[in-house]
Write a protein that binds this DNA or RNA. Sequence first.
DNA 1: CTGTTAGCGCGTTCAA
DNA 2: TTGAACGCGCTAACAG
Lengths: 333, 333
Amino acid sequence: MADRTRRVGITDVARAAEVSLSTVSRVMNGNATVDPDLAARVRATAAELGYTASPLARSLVLGRTQTVAVVVPDLANPTFQAILRGISRAAGRDGYHVLIADSAEQVGEERLLAEETRRRTDGLILCAPRMPQPELAGLLPGLSPVVVVNRAPQDAAPVVAADYRTALRELVEHLISLGHRHLAYLAGVPGSASNAARLAALADARDAHPGLEIVELPSGVDFDSGAASVDAVLATGATGILAFNDLVAMGLLSSLADRGVRVPRQLSVAGFDDIPFARYTTPPLTSAAVPATELGERAWAALHARLTGGTAEPFTTLTPRVVLRASTAAAPS
Amino acid sequence: MADRTRRVGITDVARAAEVSLSTVSRVMNGNATVDPDLAARVRATAAELGYTASPLARSLVLGRTQTVAVVVPDLANPTFQAILRGISRAAGRDGYHVLIADSAEQVGEERLLAEETRRRTDGLILCAPRMPQPELAGLLPGLSPVVVVNRAPQDAAPVVAADYRTALRELVEHLISLGHRHLAYLAGVPGSASNAARLAALADARDAHPGLEIVELPSGVDFDSGAASVDAVLATGATGILAFNDLVAMGLLSSLADRGVRVPRQLSVAGFDDIPFARYTTPPLTSAAVPATELGERAWAALHARLTGGTAEPFTTLTPRVVLRASTAAAPS
DNA sequence: CTGTTAGCGCGTTCAA
DNA sequence: TTGAACGCGCTAACAG
């Protein structure tokens, strides 16, 4: 029955096994150059005393913590939750721990959280930082090694990002292939990078298809915004609707049902994000699934590479997977 | 222009300010007994050199890391995400960092993760641990200070838990008040604690209402389980259905619509959890909202109390809030 | 192969 | 009020 009044340290083991500290240290670290018998004895007493080396002390002397920090803008956002999960599991597989910091959309806190958590860890993953580009550019060098998720390419850090532009483009092509020539886009927050990416996709599509008409309608990012857009949508006469995201699409779907408009017979509707409930709407929603978990895994891979002396791809892009469901069909003739 | 080739330590500051290490240390820690002028000079050089004390070294000497660990069974589960968010934000407000570990439902990993992360931190929050009670009871004493979320009361640690039993009971009473006397319950995983709590609620209700009939139907925890249960549900002749959770309820709703059964005119359906989309189903779903974020906040409060020498309530219970929507109405006459 | 010694970077006695 | 010395618990270089 070991005395649990105090944590047992390497000194206790050394004394109990009648060897020096170094020998215990060597045994615990699997250093080969130790007499097998001695090693066995040390291991035995260590086990008996329930000894484990203090991670803190090891970190101090080794200069590494086996921990990385992740800063997210909002832990309530499913996308960041999924990214975090991807990072956490991938890092865990490589024997790393994850320290997490939620800036709760307080842009002013981002920098502090990043610097503070970085100091306690071996590296940092910055998820979709909200700070302006000049500030980010100035911050990154002091944070190295650091990986950025979902921002434009950076000089001072590898970036792993979802390609919203290509994804929306694929959604547009899908509607075109169904015979739609008159589309409407329900825009999200005007200033946001992801909305800009979507607008770029629409511009690409217009260039590629001269006969194509795409009306841009200001809307929002939630269910109510979509529901409120129904009149504007119907007024355009468009046959295919691209919603900023699935919530907007669901709101629209709901209002369309109230109006008696048949989807997809009269109108095709596509969402974005492929949230878990997109498959349960009436009709099930065509959408584009952002591979958030994989984004996290890739971010970890990039950081791990830099942590182990390797080098990471400066810019990794993951294209959301278009999921075709019953809310889109041939344009009415 | 500071030389960034190496991290600046307390020694550098001391030398630059021409004082001893101790003085710098005192100044940085706001120790009052320092000459104001000297303190100002030290602060200036520290700022100039961009010096911040190494959290690692401080932790080693102070014996605390200002960090706590959270072990969750599944980072993909919205409930644990919400609990984590509650913990993270509350801990952040108190100046603590959060180390996170996801056991990914590998029961065998739980113990190791708990012990390992606990050693790197000042305390631990164990979320809905899946391990059997004997193992948990044996593990907790060595993890102190530790707080457990969503388990039965423990001897060796404060527990913060949602009161599923009372919540389901309230849902039952709601249906009874609407005139329902014949109910059916779609059970989740047989062995789970939360299913047991629900069954206890049903037993309570039966005791309180002699005329009440409640049929228990094995089902599952997801949309498809609910959808598959439609025939069994209709066969019971019950007028009010209690689904294990919202997903099951949504699946049932979907199949009922296919069958042409009107909800809530012919049949009332209640879910559980109040997931974000419960309000968007057709009809919107009556449910019970588990206050997961608050659960996390309470868990933090309990741990923080023990971290600061205080004492925490041994068992805190939070009752989910019943949310009445259009999927439940008066029983058909 | 093993033990002794010197730090890792800091907070905190103890004298001065 | 300040500085010198010690120790937190451990690893690594250096002798033996």
